[in-house]
């Protein structure tokens, strides 16, 4: 119930930001829209903590900062390889990595992060491991150290 309400507030904010109009009619319509959305979500059975990770909110900025840095690094790496391409600058690998996260959400964020970061793309995600395609060996090694796994906000859910 609380979740529903919270989500309603969130969607209302979303509406207001999209709309930018504050006439009563549009506000009313907005309210109706949010109600309808919530109704549909209930019907679709997708209203739960996973779809509304508000509990992670506090940790998100840090995470984003981290991930952004990683992305930039990744890009610099890839760009370098592209620009210096001679046919020898990459050495594609497939590696399997154990997942430290225990929740689906956490695993997903982790897998996505892997994709976003230097020279690695997650290819397959299962319950306890992720298969990664790496552009070069260093990247694969880097992953195995588990630095990123630490950064992925998971503990909140883990309690």
């Amino acid at each position: 119930m609380l979740l529903t309400f919270g989500y309603g507030v969130f969607l209302s904010m979303f509406w207001l930001l999209l709309s930018g109009h504050f006439e009563p009619l549009l506000l009313g319509l907005g309210l109706a829209s949010v109600a309808l959305t919530i109704f549909l979500m209930k019907r679709m059975n997708i209203l739960d903590h996973e779809s509304f990770p508000i509990h992670l909110a506090t940790r998100l900025p840090a995470f984003f900062a981290y991930i952004f840095r990683e992305i930039v690094k990744a890009n610099i790496d890839v760009i370098k390889r592209i620009l210096t391409w001679t046919g020898k600058s990459i050495s594609p690998q497939l590696v399997e990595i154990q997942l430290p996260q225990k929740t689906d959400l956490g695993r997903v964020i982790y897998a996505n992060s892997i994709t976003l970061t230097p020279g690695t793309v997650s290819v397959e995600l299962t319950h306890d491991k992720v298969i990664v395609h790496a552009l070069a060996k260093e990247a694969a090694d880097d992953l195995s150290t588990g630095n990123m796994a630490q950064a992925v906000p998971d503990r909140v859910i883990d309690k």
């Binding site: 992305i71 890839v78 592209i82 391409w85 594609p92 994709t115 976003l116 690695t120 793309v121 552009l135």
Partner: peptide, 15 residues
């Protein structure tokens, strides 16, 4: 430039 699909994925995915 990249030779196969998976390596191209790095180019697209990241850049």
């Amino acid at each position: 430039r990249f030779p196969d699909f998976y390596s191209r994925q790095h180019a697209t995915g990241t850049t």
